[in-house]
């Protein structure tokens, strides 16, 4: 009835349609997983960790041995600097004691130390269009999907896939990321979304009527029940008010340098951290 050529064309057409439908379903059901990601992380994670370890070792060798010639000069300079720093150190000790007292007062330090686990970044997303990283901690360390990932500079992202010993983190600069945020100065709310160029983020849905200034600090609102309230995100670097529309376009520069991320902290119980900060 059909020639062989015709059958190939029909089969090809059906394959294309099925393929497009499959991708569409996959896009809509992004959060659903059959476990392939866990298996992949389980298999590829150790290899990535080994490569990472090798590179770090090579860097250490380079820094410690090949640069040794410059160490003598550096030593003289440092000895002079040391004398100056001793004086400053005394002042710092006083500040440190004051800081410790304030920390104890807020009960913040204790709360965080019991909630946080550190992990090393061992791999990154193979595609430049998606911003995820792979870390060397997983379900065996008590990690769960959705937990917030941070560094001292601010919010890094959220855990999206967990295997036994490795996990994948979606960074806040990814297209799919969304963090409920507010401007610290005047408490104006918005949603921090990734996808801006040069690793910046958008602060979306900020009404035109609210005054936003360049340099304003953006922090998490805590309303998304993921990130602890008041966690640093970035500062406002650009504001565009177009002729029409009820929102203004705000671009923020994250405090975290995502290209240089090496270690991250995962907050195991973000809701409790929020509670303890409030307390």
């Amino acid at each position: 009835m059909f020639s062989k050529k015709m059958l190939i064309i029909i089969a090809g057409f059906i394959l294309i349609v099925v393929n497009i439908m499959g991708i569409a379903v996959s896009l809509k059901a992004k959060n659903y997983s059959i476990g392939g990601d866990r298996v992949t992380l389980y298999l590829i994670g150790p290899l990535q960790e080994s490569v990472n370890y090798f590179i770090q070792s090579m860097r250490n060798i380079w820094n410690h041995y090949f640069f040794i010639t410059s160490v003598a000069k550096e030593n003289d300079r440092l000895l002079k600097a040391l004398n100056n720093e001793r004086q400053k150190s005394n002042e710092c000790k006083e500040l440190f004691l004051e800081n410790s007292r304030l920390n104890n007062l807020l009960n913040f330090q204790k709360g965080l130390s019991s909630q946080v686990i550190a992990a090393e970044v061992i791999g990154r997303d193979p595609s430049p269009w998606f911003k995820t990283i792979i870390i060397n901690k997983g379900a065996a360390n008590g990690l769960k999907k959705g937990l917030p990932v941070m560094v001292s500079e601010g919010i890094v992202g959220q855990l999206i896939d967990i295997s036994k010993h490795y996990s994948r983190v979606m960074l806040i600069i990814d297209h799919n990321s969304a963090v409920d945020a507010l401007i610290q100065r005047n408490r104006t709310r918005g949603i921090v979304k990734g996808g801006e160029e040069n690793g910046n983020c958008f602060l979306k849905y900020v009404l035109r009527k609210y005054e936003v200034s360049i340099g304003d600090v953006v922090v998490s609102s805590g309303l998304d029940s993921v990130f602890p309230k008041g966690s640093l995100i970035g500062n406002v670097s650009k504001i565009v008010k177009t002729g029409s529309g009820i929102f203004q376009e705000v671009i923020i520069t994250p405090y975290v340098d995502f290209d240089k991320l090496e270690e991250v902290l995962i907050i195991l119980n973000p809701s409790k951290v929020e509670f303890e900060i409030k307390k």
């Binding site: 996959s26 896009l27 298996v39 992949t40 193979p126 269009w129 995820t132 994948r168 799919n176």
Partner: peptide
């Protein structure tokens, strides 16, 4: 394709589709 899809932050099937075609 499956490995790349599982390592990437994109939807599952993008690399599989690309490599297949």
């Amino acid at each position: 394709g499956i490995i790349m899809d599982n390592l990437s932050g994109g939807a599952f099937g993008i690399y599989l589709t690309t490599y297949f075609w």
